[in-house]
Amino acid sequence: MADTTIKVDPDTRDRLMVLARERGMTMRDLLTELAGATPTREELRKRYEATKTYCETHFGVTLTDDDHDRAEQAWKDLEAGRPVDSL
């Protein structure tokens, strides 16, 4: 496997090194793990469609675009520490 250099600022490099050490792995392994565990937008879209189809098939629930938008807003509010109204 050919190596590639990734340029990051020193603070980011140092943080990656600490994270790798805490996990008992190399920075290369940490970055490989991160890249493998982080879905692309296309993978997220496919996951959403599969979940929507599953809910419709197994639970008889039809999810609308409005339902999706409300759920997305609820997650944003939770992440920001804002109160969330019931969905």
Rank of each mutant, 00 (worst) to 15 (best):
T12S: 04
K52C: 01
A20W: 03
T57D: 13
E56Q: 10
T32W: 05
W75D: 09
L44C: 08
I6P: 05
A35D: 01
L16M: 12
L63P: 00
R45T: 06
L31P: 00
L78T: 03
A80N: 09
R47A: 14
T62H: 15
C55Q: 05
Q73E: 09
E56N: 11
K76Y: 10
L44E: 03
A2M: 12
T5Y: 09
G60N: 03
T64K: 10
G36I: 00
I6E: 06
A37C: 05
K46I: 00
P83V: 06
A2V: 11
S86G: 10
E42Y: 06
P39Y: 00
T4V: 15
D85I: 03
R21Q: 13
G36F: 00
A20E: 04
E33Y: 13
L34V: 06
P39L: 01
E33G: 09
D14G: 06
S86N: 13
C55P: 00
P10Q: 08
A50K: 10
A71D: 05
H58G: 03
K46W: 01
E56Y: 04
H58N: 15
L19C: 01
V61M: 09
D85N: 11
T57C: 06
M1T: 14
C55A: 13
R82E: 03
E79M: 06
D11S: 11
R82I: 01
T51R: 08
L30V: 01
A20R: 04
W75I: 14
D3N: 13
I6Y: 05
D77Q: 15
T53V: 10
T40C: 01
L63A: 07
R21L: 10
H68M: 04
A80G: 02
D66V: 10
A35E: 04
E72P: 02
W75V: 15
L19I: 06
T5N: 11
L30P: 00
Y54S: 12
D65H: 14
E79N: 07
T62M: 11
L34D: 01
E56D: 09
V84K: 02
E42S: 09
R13W: 08
Y54C: 08
G36N: 12
H58Q: 14
T57P: 04
R15Q: 12
V18Y: 10
Y54A: 14
R47Q: 13
